[in-house]
Amino acid sequence: MAKRDIPEINAGSMADIAFLLLIFFLVTTTMEKDTAYIRYIPQKLDSPIPPPEIEQRNIFEIRANAANRLMIRGKIIENPDDISERVLEFYRMNRNLTASQTAAYIKNPSYKGIDFPFYSRVTMDEVKRKINENLDELDKAEAEEKDDFITFYDKMVKNWQKKEQALKTLKVNELIEIHPQAHIRVVVQQKTEYRLFAKIHSEIQEALVELRNEAAEKYFGESYSKMRKRLDQDKEDKKGDGKKIKALEVLYPESIIEVKPKG
C-alpha cells in the first residue's frame, strides 16, 4: 500500500480559542485571596446560666469608642499597634512561674504581676477525673431532660477531652494552662468603625499566633503558622499537623468575648 500523507490540521484558530478561555478566566476570577479572622458566636441559651464571678485580673478589656479611640484595661492607648504587645504581656506575665511561686505570689498584693492571670498545672489523672465527673453530670442532666445543662456539660466533657488529647500530643505529664477564665473582652460602641474593630482582631490574632509559634518551636521544633499552611495544602494530614495544632490551641485558646454595644 502506498504511504498516504496525513492531512495537516489547521491550528490557526487555536490561538483564538485559547484567548477566549483566557479572557473568560480573567473576567471570572480574582487575584486576591480571601483572608479573614475566624471567630465563634456563643450559643444561644433559652435560660442563661448566670455568669460566674470573674476576677478582674483575668479580664483583658479592649474598649473602642465612637470616635475610634482605644482604651486597654482602663488606660487610653494612642497607637492601635500596641494592642498585640499588651496581649502578649497579659499572657506572658505569670507564665514562667513555678507552682510554688504561683502559690506565693497569688496572695501577695505588691507582686507586679498580681493583675495578670495566673497559670495552673493540670495532670493527666486530674483531666481523666474531670472527664468522668462531667460525664456523670451529663447523664444526670439527660435523665432530667434539662437541655441547657446538657449542652453545658457536653461542652465541658469535650473541653476536657481536648486537654487530654493535648497532653498526649505534647507528650507531657502536666499541662501548664492559663486560668480558664482568662479572656480578652472587646467592647465597642455602636458607631465604632469596622476598621478599628478589625484592627483589634488583627492585633489579638498576631499575639496569639506569636505565642503559639513559640510553643510550637518548643514542643515540635516547627512553627505553628507553617503547620497551619501545610494542613491547608494537605487535606489528608499526612504529617499529623491537625493534632498538634489542636494541642497548641489548647495551650493558647482564643478566648474572646465580643460585647454587643448597648443603646
Binding site: 475566624i38 465563634y40 458566636i41 450559643q43 444561644k44 469596622y194 478589625a198 482582631h201 465580643e258 454587643k260
Partner: peptide, 21 residues
C-alpha cells in the same frame, strides 16, 4: 456587625469570619 451576629445566633450558625486584607 453585631446585628448580623445576633441573626446568625438565632439559627445556630455560630462560625463567622471577619474579612480583612
Amino acid at each position: 456587625i453585631f446585628d448580623i451576629r445576633e441573626a446568625l445566633q438565632e439559627i445556630d450558625a455560630l462560625k463567622i469570619a471577619y474579612a480583612v486584607e
